[in-house]
Nucleic acid binder design. Structure first.
Lengths: 235, 235
DNA sequence: GGGGAAATTAACCCGTTGGATAAATACTGT
DNA sequence: ACAGTATTTATCCAACGGGTTAATTTCCCC
């Protein structure tokens, strides 16, 4: 064992390399869009060589699609863990809003990637086999909550779960995705802690007030637990 | 006057040329983003040549900023014509939603441009002198409506007009801007006539139900006048 | 311990793109 | 008719950017 300790110029690590490439690609595509992303920049940030991208994943568009699919998989996986079934319907909706909001805050690249894909008119997503099947379970989950809410008398309406989900996503997504321009226009920092707390309360109050028709004093799951907010104050 | 009828190879039309350039640039930036836009393509679609872009406007980024400023000016101008002052507050809100929705539908490039600018973290907008001042009047207009609504008893809450405006814009913007990916995911065509009508009703019902706490049978300004919708059905 | 596939590097290729320049030509108001 | 302005045509170019080729290194299995 008295071998000469060879100095390795590099180590083999295909899985790790692949992950680093996808991570760097996600950041690059999110920061600059598909057209603005630079393959060389991805390689460098992955601590790799441009050749590696093509070796492990494929060309720029393959890379992009894989990043996009990964992003969808990630949020759907977390959504599955939400477990809204055994919450009171209003609480379940509040939790859904809270989760969506915080997921978007924690994963700003997700927003940028979706915008990029929509600029491309979902051209890549349409080609994806993985993504299409991932969503129906989640819609059913929301439908169940709404149905339970109507039966229990908590909700006065049977909302289309797709409309409801889109609205919840919209309230969070637009605010965060467009915070840069909105902050300039309104002359406020919309991403400050206070502004974010205020927004979350506003969204929950808006949706729950519409669904229940009541003021919502103690739905609890708000990220600002100190403030006991009523719909009167917070919509 | 027996002049030779000269055959003109081209006409002078600096203003027209400038407009065509900006129009073509708007389409190009909206379709491909800032990085994806091609200066040569803009020139061709403007019926001009590349030299003219630089002669009349400037480089690519100057061109982009001018397009962006023009887009903001246009929507603010139309908003000023909304004239919400002498409507009943709930009707005023419904009209605002209706207008916002239809403006976005009529001007899809506006949505794409905003997304592009947010991808750039509002880098260009921050440099713009024109845009910053254009917005406060509009917020005041909404504040007035809300205040009137609270005083008249129509609204049970004094909403922050900025939050309200962002929410209204969000409900419309996200749906339309992301319609490509959402349509794939939910397996529906979200841009069909029926789907659009349904969405508009949903948005109005959601916001007005939250503000008024009542069912909203006849707020009238909906684009689907045949359907007399109650909040019960439409949220 | 060595052969060979797998992983990685380094170097190169070549079309594209934004931008600049020069010169010629045509138009239009005065 | 003239002068200044608008427009075209032609060309250039340097940087960039996606993609490829060939050589090199590593490491696993026999």
């Amino acid at each position: 064992m008295a071998k000469t300790k060879r100095i390795l110029k590099w180590q083999r690590d295909p899985e790790g390399m692949r992950l680093r490439i996808l991570e760097a690609a996600k950041a690059e595509f999110a920061a600059h869009g598909l057209a603005g992303a630079r393959v060389d920049s991805i390689a460098k940030n992955a601590g790799a060589n441009k050749r590696m991208l093509y070796y492990h994943v494929g060309n720029k568009e393959d890379l992009y699609l894989e990043v996009l699919e990964g992003a969808y998989e990630k949020i759907r996986a977390e959504e599955r863990g939400l477990d809204l079934e055994h919450l009171e319907p209003p609480e379940a909706i509040a939790r859904l809003i809270d989760f969506t909001w915080n997921y978007f805050i924690r994963n700003p690249e997700f927003l940028a990637l979706l915008n990029t894909e929509n600029l491309a008119k979902a051209r890549h997503l349409k080609r994806s086999t993985k993504v299409k099947s991932m969503h129906s379970p989640f819609v059913e989950m929301i439908r169940t909550v709404v149905t339970r809410g109507v039966e229990s008398g908590d909700f006065r309406v049977a909302v289309d779960p797709v409309q409801l989900y889109i609205s919840i996503a919209a309230l969070a997504f637009f605010y965060l995705s467009n915070s840069a321009t909105l902050s300039v226009i309104f002359g406020r920092d919309l991403l400050s802690k206070d502004a974010r707390d205020e927004r979350l309360e506003h969204m929950i109050a808006l949706v729950l007030a519409a669904l229940t028709g009541k003021s919502i004093a103690a739905f609890g799951k708000s990220k600002a637990p100190k403030l006991q907010v009523t719909a009167q104050q917070a919509v």
